[in-house]
Structure formats: structure tokens, C-alpha cells
Design a protein around this nucleic acid. Structure first.
Lengths: 339, 339
DNA sequence: CTGAAAGCGCTAACAT
DNA sequence: ATGTTAGCGCTTTCAG
């Protein structure tokens, strides 16, 4: 708590060897006599020595750290980020790399600063998981000399490598499922304007058209992925002259809002109303009835991203510009045949 | 993406000045001619130069970074961490410090490694927010030469400075509230064994005794802060010969589980059953009826912790060993008079 | 106001 | 198997 940290030189001096030998022991290099190794290890143990990271990074030119930039970690609409982080964290751990998580609070200046920080030698690669695509940080990313991958990225088509979820198929699967159950008035509660939103909407409309059902713009409502916005959207839909018999919400949280609204009006789910969500967060299995939803491979997204970017830092071949991860329809109790 | 990063020397060479002048400009030191400053800034802009963090940290001996160690960011029982993080992040930003968040997955080895990492010059101070108190990392924390604060810490009384929430009062407030409403059969759904759990339980029992109500161990059930565990605990309680008319759950998530279980049995809340949670996560205001709960000052906890530890790194006076933050009873719709 | 020298703690590349 | 030499890119200290 008070005394200054030990250094390599001191350890070397105490153990009566050169700095290099200590360095080799620390880094598990072979070519050190077992006896010497033992002695050095003892000194390290006793003194509680830990190698200084800055010095090590500076000298080696590598940090073995991946930076991950996210908007927030608490708000409802970013709940799914936790799962991505878990996948990324586990993967990083397996490689014995560190993961450095930075939050931006959806603030343009912070987005820029965080990325700049990471690019200034704090990390060997950057993973960007932001719903906003500001020109400021995008150009920074393109200029930086370390690998970058954007994850599930919002608005703009960038020349940066990206890993995305197959949102279009997600939109199709949900809609087709409801159609198969005989529903014809299927409402769509969208998220904030983003590529994910557009692609899912496109899938929804495509399936309707394929089945000869006109797209009714009255049934397409805007939300923001949060529970309250799903509630509000549902209230609006229920007040329509010809209300929907099924609702497809672009997040599980919004689907919960729909269920809440339905419950307050005495509508039973799934008998009076079928509901499909998106994400498959753990809570989807906890509510009653359990939520039918589109599962995003979030853990896998994090995992894949780490594996890929570490490969990139090793100078391995950079894979195709855009990678698409599959989604899956999970049928539970919140959907049933239309009456 | 490919060309190597710029260095201070190159900027200095291009601008035709010495390294020191560039350094002074970057760090906003005064005593640089405006003209020179302009010229250097231009070069920096054009080249996209960013100062290398490792070099800077190494030379200055400071990182202006606080490390925060948490178990996970996604699991239900750690949902409240997001709010702490928000407070910490905002406070760090105001000081222009960085926040480095590390997750451990409740894994002893990772706890140790993460803390060791941070103590190895990655951070100037460490905030520990772990529900587990393993001797391995505790002794490491006590040996380290940088300031450490434990937050809302679990099991063991350590000699480390700590910031905690007033759990005891929380337990009292919830119980007293239900008592005031006329309830006599008040169940308690606990969390995993920890100081927080014990203190809240103590408050609960204390108030009961003060009011001459015998503590019925049948009404004290163990949970793990998750929604499903609350559900299970409620199922158990409802099957008792003499079931409770009110339930106090040690997390909002468990309270949701209780509400779910009650709903499936046709018990109306609050008429047939009063429910009090703990935390006051945003979702507490979204469910129907809204949840009466004990609000923890989570944002403030994060904020306070950062302010304190930055002060400590500046060598400022170390405040009392243990700081207690107040809790608050938030009365909403899930509690009412006993019939 | 600006610059030169020294060194932060470590590793890479070469000796021995 | 171990030691020596040279820096990594920056800041600190002290001179001009």
C-alpha cells in the first residue's frame, strides 16, 4: 500500500542474476536452468513482484489487449450487450489476452476519445459495438494502424470489417411463424432507426408480400427497444379500429411491454394475442407465458469477434469484409393459432 | 491500418522544434508561444498523431486510470452493477480519468489475475465490486502499493477501505413498512450468503422482535437474487400451511419471480399479497403493479467510489475505513393493507 | 519560451 | 545457460 513497486532490476540483483534471466523466467521462456528458475521464482514470490505493464508494452510493442467500445452497460436496450461481453471475455481469456471495455454513454465526444485512447497503444485491436455511427470516430477507425471490427453495427455501410447478425432472416422467421399460425393482422414494433431495424422490417414486409398480405402501415409502430416503448406501442395498436391479433416486437424488452399492456386490458396471451420478441435474453424464459422470440447468437458474436481480431493482430489473413451470424426462431408459449 | 504510428520525435522533426515543446503542447502546459503551438497542432492534426499511452505512463509513473473489478455484467443477479458503473463512468469522465472494467466470471483465478493486472501499472487505483471474498486476492490487495476500495463487499471484514450500502436499515425499512400495513405473516427471501444478506436479515428480525412478533423460520427462504430463485421461493411459501400475506425479497428480480408465481395461482397483488423488493432497478417501475422496493443509491455508490479513490491517488487524506450510503423505501403499488 | 540529457522498466537481438 | 547493449516513446529535470 505504501512502499514502491519492485522492478526487474531489483529482482535480478536480489537473485544475483541479470535482468534478462528474470525476464525469461517471467515469460516462461525456456533455456533457463531449473535451479536458477527456482531461485528467481522464490524471490518473486517473497517480494510480491509484478512486472510493469507499461514498460512491457512499450518494449515489446504489443499489449495483448483487445478494446471493446460499447454505449452503456445498464440501460435496458443494451441488456443484450452483457451476453456479447461474456462471449468476448471467455474467448479473450482462452487466448490469455485482456479485454478492455469502454463505455461512451452514446456521447459523440466520448466515442471519439475512447477509440483514440485504445488506438494510442492501449490495445492491439478494437471491437466497436455502437448503435450510432458518427463520422468523427469512423474516420478515426479507418486511419488507425491497428485492426478494427464493427459488431452488429448501426447505420452506415463502412469499409471496416464487420460481424453482424442475420437480421433479415430474423424478420422473416418471426413473420412466417405468425403467418403459419393463421394470423393476418400482424403488427411490427420497430426499434430506433438502424440497419438492424431496417433489415428486420424488410424481412417482415417481404414475407407478408410473398403471402399476398398487404403491408398495413398502421400496424408498423416505432419503439426504442425499451420495455416502456413496447408498452406504449401496444397501447396504440390496441386502440386501432382493427387491432392486430399478433405482434412482432424487435426486442424482448418491448415484447414484455406488450404483454404488460395486454395484461392490463384483460387480453390473454397467447389466446387473444400472439407475441414474438427478438434477442432471447434470459428473462424471455422467466415470464409467463414464456416468450416466443428470435434468438441472436450473442455469446457467439462476442466469441467470434475476439478470435477473429486476435487472428488479425497476428497478421493472419483478414477474412471477408462482412460476416453474418445465423438467428433462430425459438417457439415458446406466447404464440398460438389465430382464432 | 497499416503504416506505423507517429511518434513525438517525428512530430517534433516535422514541426522543426524539440520533443519537449511538442510534449508541452500536447499536455496543455503554458509557456509555449501561440505561434509555435499553432504550428505543432497543425502537424498533429495532419498526421493523426496520438501519444503512446504506455510510454507516457511509464515516463510519468501515472496512468490516470481506475480499475474496476466486477464478476459479470450480464447475469440477472448483477444487473444492478450497470448502474454503479454508470455513476463511476460519469465521475471518472469528469475528472478526465479512464475507467477500466474487468470481469471475473466469479472465478477465483481470474479475480486474482485481473487484480494483479491492474496493480501492475495498468491503473492508479482499484475498485473491487465482488460478491466473493477469496483470501487469494484479498492478500494481494493488501500488499499492493496503489489505493484500493471495496464496494458493497460480500463476506469478510477486511482492513481495506470500503463503501457499503446501509443494508441493515434497508431490512428494517421494508419490514416496518409491511408491519405498518398490518401484516403479521411476513416472509423473507434471502440472497446468497453474504454480509448484505446477513445485515438485511438482521434488520428484518430486529423489527419483528421490536413489535413482539416471533420470527418464524419457516418464513425465511434462501434465494440467489435471480428471478427464478424468487419464483421457486414463492412457490414454497404459498404451499405452507399458514402462508404469508406479505413477502420481502432481497432483490427486485426475486420480487418479480414472486409476482410471477402469485399471478399463476390467481393471487392478486397487492390485494392478496404484498411484495417488497430491494434495489429499485428501472424495471421496478415498469411492471404492473409497480414494485414497492428499497432503493439502493447505486449511481451514487459508483460516483462516490471514483471521487474517493482519485483523491486517494492524489495522496489526499484517506477517509474513514468504512463509508455507509443511505437506502430509501420507495412505496409503489405492490403493497397494501393486510385484510 | 525552448532544448538537451537522462531515465521510466522492460524486451529484442545479439554476444559470451 | 546467462549477460550485454540498445532502445521502445515519452516525461522530468535542468540549462540555456
Amino acid at each position: 500500500m505504501t512502499r514502491p513497486a519492485m522492478t526487474l532490476s531489483e529482482i535480478a540483483r536480489i537473485a544475483g542474476v541479470s535482468k534478462m534471466t528474470v525476464s525469461n523466467v517471467i515469460n516462461g521462456k525456456k533455456g533457463v536452468a531449473e535451479e536458477t528458475r527456482q531461485r528467481i521464482m522464490e524471490v518473486i514470490q517473497e517480494t510480491g513482484y509484478i512486472a510493469n505493464r507499461s514498460a512491457r508494452n512499450l518494449a515489446s510493442g504489443r499489449t495483448r489487449t483487445i478494446g471493446l467500445v460499447v454505449p452503456k452497460l445498464n440501460s435496458n436496450y443494451t441488456l443484450y450487450i452483457g451476453e456479447i461481453l461474456r462471449g468476448a471475455g471467455d474467448a479473450a481469456d482462452q487466448h490469455h489476452w485482456d479485454l478492455l471495455v469502454c463505455t461512451t454513454s452514446d456521447d459523440e465526444e466520448r466515442e471519439f476519445r475512447r477509440i483514440q485512447s485504445l488506438a494510442s497503444g492501449l490495445a492491439d485491436g478494437i471491437l466497436v459495438l455502437l448503435p450510432r455511427a458518427e463520422q468523427s470516430y469512423l474516420s478515426l477507425l479507418q486511419e488507425t494502424h491497428i485492426p478494427v471490427i464493427t459488431l452488429d453495427h448501426g447505420l452506415i455501410e463502412t469499409p471496416l470489417p464487420s460481424i453482424d447478425v442475420d437480421n433479415h432472416t430474423g424478420g422473416r422467421l418471426a413473420t412466417q411463424h405468425l403467418l403459419d399460425l393463421g394470423h393476418r393482422r400482424i403488427a411490427f414494433i420497430g426499434g430506433t432507426y438502424s440497419r438492424a431495424h431496417l433489415e428486420r422490417l424488410d424481412g417482415y414486409q417481404e414475407v407478408l408480400k410473398e403471402n399476398g398480405i398487404p403491408v398495413d402501415s398502421e400496424l408498423i409502430v416505432q419503439g426504442d427497444y425499451s420495455q416502456p416503448s413496447g408498452f406504449k406501442a401496444a397501447e396504440h395498436l390496441f386502440n386501432l379500429h382493427d387491432p392486430p391479433t399478433a405482434i412482432f416486437a424487435l426486442s424482448d424488452a418491448m415484447a414484455f411491454g406488450v404483454m404488460e399492456s395486454a395484461g392490463r386490458r384483460g387480453l390473454r396471451i397467447p389466446d387473444d394475442l400472439s407475441v414474438v420478441g427478438f434477442d432471447d435474453i434470459p428473462m424471455a424464459g422467466w415470464v409467463h407465458p414464456q416468450l416466443t422470440t428470435i434468438r441472436q447468437p450473442l455469446y457467439q458474436l462476442g466469441e467470434t469477434a475476439i478470435n477473429l481480431i486476435i487472428a488479425m493482430t497476428d497478421g493472419d489473413v483478414l477474412p471477408g469484409q462482412r460476416m453474418l451470424l445465423p438467428v433462430e426462431l425459438v417457439v415458446r408459449g406466447s404464440t398460438t393459432k389465430a382464432r
